[in-house]
Design a protein around this nucleic acid. Sequence first.
DNA 1: TGACGCGATGTATGCGCATACATTGCATTG
DNA 2: CAATGCAATGTATGCGCATACATCGCGTCA
Lengths: 338, 338
Amino acid sequence: MKARRQLPTQTDVAEAAGVSTATVSRVINNQGAITPSARQRVQEAIERLNYVPHAGARALAMQRTHTLGAIIPTLNNAIFAEGINAFERTAQSLGYTLLLSVSQQDLQHELALVIKMIERGVDGLLLVGNMHEEAVFDRLEQAEVSHVCTWAYDPAARAANIGFDNAQSMHAVVDHLVTLGHHNVGMLAGQVQHNDRARDRVVGVRSRLNHHGLSLSEANIIELEYAIEPSRVALRQLLNRGVTAVVCGNDVIAYGALLEAQTLGRRVPEDLSITGFDDLSLSAQLNPALTSVQVNAVAMGKAAARQLTDAVEGRADMASVQMPTQLVVRQTTGPCKR
Amino acid sequence: MKARRQLPTQTDVAEAAGVSTATVSRVINNQGAITPSARQRVQEAIERLNYVPHAGARALAMQRTHTLGAIIPTLNNAIFAEGINAFERTAQSLGYTLLLSVSQQDLQHELALVIKMIERGVDGLLLVGNMHEEAVFDRLEQAEVSHVCTWAYDPAARAANIGFDNAQSMHAVVDHLVTLGHHNVGMLAGQVQHNDRARDRVVGVRSRLNHHGLSLSEANIIELEYAIEPSRVALRQLLNRGVTAVVCGNDVIAYGALLEAQTLGRRVPEDLSITGFDDLSLSAQLNPALTSVQVNAVAMGKAAARQLTDAVEGRADMASVQMPTQLVVRQTTGPCKR
DNA sequence: TGACGCGATGTATGCGCATACATTGCATTG
DNA sequence: CAATGCAATGTATGCGCATACATCGCGTCA
């Protein structure tokens, strides 16, 4: 499939337009002064031949690819998909194309993907979270590729962050539940092992409970994957331990908890309070509507794309920005009746 | 950000290893015969210098990028996200990187994106549906870029298809409802304008109803965007028209219908039957669990990646494959009581 | 032992483009 | 009218790599 072989090249356009390749290059890149007539002849030739510049050759000559990379844990998570969707749209509108890879939560694999991204010469790279192999940063710095870690905010992070403080975001949740009188709360957490976001959310819940003189016993924390079925199972365990409120690490886990509670005939929120995290659009529609922490994935995606391109084009250096989160109280949380 | 400038090049590696660049290239590409000792020296040099080949230069020299493109309507749709996730994973495992763009259902924009993909020299391209500008195919053929249209199956399509027959997939749904005694059925369809999948699903419902001697009046079809809130509104309209069953163009619309029905105090399925399409993982968990049409997005993504790479590497030509869909009957459909 | 073949490696070239530098032509100025 | 300057364009080069072709060295066989 020697696709390129017969595709028209800049030289073909130059001949067809009766100019030199330099002139063709100039009209394409809008550089230098060009006679209107020459410009027009070139543009017509381009159109007529369906000429398309060769990005690889361009990258070689310019040392720029106009490509942005993103490596995310998975697309099977609506909130990441939403963020990437915004990232792509913004990048596209700024003249950049998206190179996307999924790491499947595997840090070693992520490192390999980062190297691939460097190979492809991405001008900037988006990563998720602050938990990465050190070599990731070493390589990116060596290659001078601008990069940003999203979905987290930590002033001490090695790279610039565009995201929110996962631990602190849980404070409002805990405060809310405590105010409602809950003192035996459980947590259905995402898997913490290679996931600083999930870990920090647990940390946030625990520390804030402590702040209120309460505690989160180890047995009241259950770690599970991003899926409904395991969440249902886990909820039953927590109920056996007599919790009156369940803080979930994300909305999908919360859906599982809510559905299982209903299946078991528990009233929500009268018998059990449940909170989510992410505030997916479905959450507001459920019955009862889910109390959740709203994070602005779209804003993060946009900001990341804008910052990266600003950095690439020399307009500004990468800088961390902390995004707000907001507890949205709906119908799955209520006063503790016990 | 002249990132590349100071990055080690093949020449640096050659020097460090005491060989020529040709030898370096050979060990990298595993070509020709290389003395074990030479190979090792090269590999050590690569490691030591953190050498990374320049994909652009490679593309120039080889007329291949080892990149696969995908242009999808949006990522804010779990089923596409799932399919793309599988596509990426498969492509990655075959040595290809994913270039992803979202068209936002805009065919003109899609054409522009296709041209960008050709610029980037993608070796293969995945598209969604069969509704595209003719120029899309003209360009892809001219550039000899292998491509495939997914999420649809039409033997008459201009490009190879890997997907299912959207119209025919609705037959089982209609048959099911008719068997249950429904004769006044409504449809909440996705937007049909620039979307052959949504359109075909409407066509399938209508033609199959006709087949049973029933009909789907214009007024019983409501077109709406992919979201819950508009679906709730639309459901009320259909209820006013006395429908006993509602066929939805996708699961998200079905969620809206189900939730609204519950809000209005209608019993599902006793008072109203509802069906979805896509069978998202949440659908089986709802209460009542949603009757839906299962499509295998993961299989489509995998198959597309495999076929494209097979074509690129000359192992096989692109060929259409029809994927099955399956009606999964759950609890939102029941006998018509009227 | 000399011719030959083959494995291992090096040399040189071109992929398509951007761009520094050279060149040309023309208007402007004294 | 000659000198000057600048706008418009062309020419030549290199970006980093793969690879065709040339070369070298060594074992093999007659």
